[in-house]
């Protein structure tokens, strides 16, 4: 979709006066059947995931995998040298599987370490970050999103999107400063 002046349209955006207003508007947009839209706020709004019809984040799945990988890395790292490469008798204690309690700290630490790194990088990947630019930054009011402003953006890519319908919905829900955001 393009504007008469030839700019590619990213979506229709509106500003809301409060978190509560944004929350109510999100429920309306969800019920109107839009799929490609988003709300922007200076802080996470409690209950907004449900208001947008989003489920629970599945970030915990990669973190679990990361933790398991860390655990097995620690097993390899401790048993490999102790059992095969460099068997070492310390305090006259055995160096085979019976020594396993002495390896618990390493196993624990590497499980946590791998899980934490997986958590951080999975979060970035799932959020599509880092990125240099995003069309919403083309709107000059948008810089207040990290301060005290609340925005709702319906993307033009949404199959239900028409400019008039989106404008009407955002106006009905109390949106202010309605704007068409350009891609470039």
């Amino acid at each position: 979709m393009r504007t008469p002046s030839g700019n590619k349209v990213y979506g229709m955006a509106a500003e809301y006066p409060s978190a509560a207003a944004l929350y109510e508007a999100a429920k309306r947009v969800r019920d109107a059947g839009f799929k490609r839209w988003d709300v922007h706020s200076p802080f996470p709004i409690h209950g907004m995931d449900d208001a947008m019809g989003l489920g629970k984040s599945w970030l915990s799945a990669p973190v679990l995998i990361g933790g398991i990988v860390g655990f097995f890395t620690a097993i390899t790292l401790t048993f490999g040298p102790s059992w095969f490469i460099y068997p070492l008798v310390v305090h006259g204690k055995p160096y085979d599987w019976r020594t396993v309690p002495a390896f618990f700290p390493i196993m624990f630490e590497l499980t946590v370490l791998f899980a934490a790194f997986t958590c951080f990088f999975s979060m970035l990947i799932m959020n599509g970050l880092p990125r240099w630019h995003h069309p919403v930054f083309n709107w000059n009011r948008f810089s207040r999103v990290t301060n005290d402003a609340f925005f709702l953006v319906i993307e033009a890519r949404d199959p239900r999107f028409t400019e008039s319908e989106a404008r009407q919905l955002l106006e009905e829900t109390g949106g202010q400063h309605l704007t068409v955001i350009h891609e470039d």
Partner: peptide
């Protein structure tokens, strides 16, 4: 800031990441 734009689709994973960390 990694291009942070306060999107709720981002907050959703962000909050989970914070909880898990």
């Amino acid at each position: 800031a990694l291009g942070w734009r306060g999107s709720n689709r981002n907050w959703r994973h962000y909050e989970m990441a914070y909880l898990l960390l």
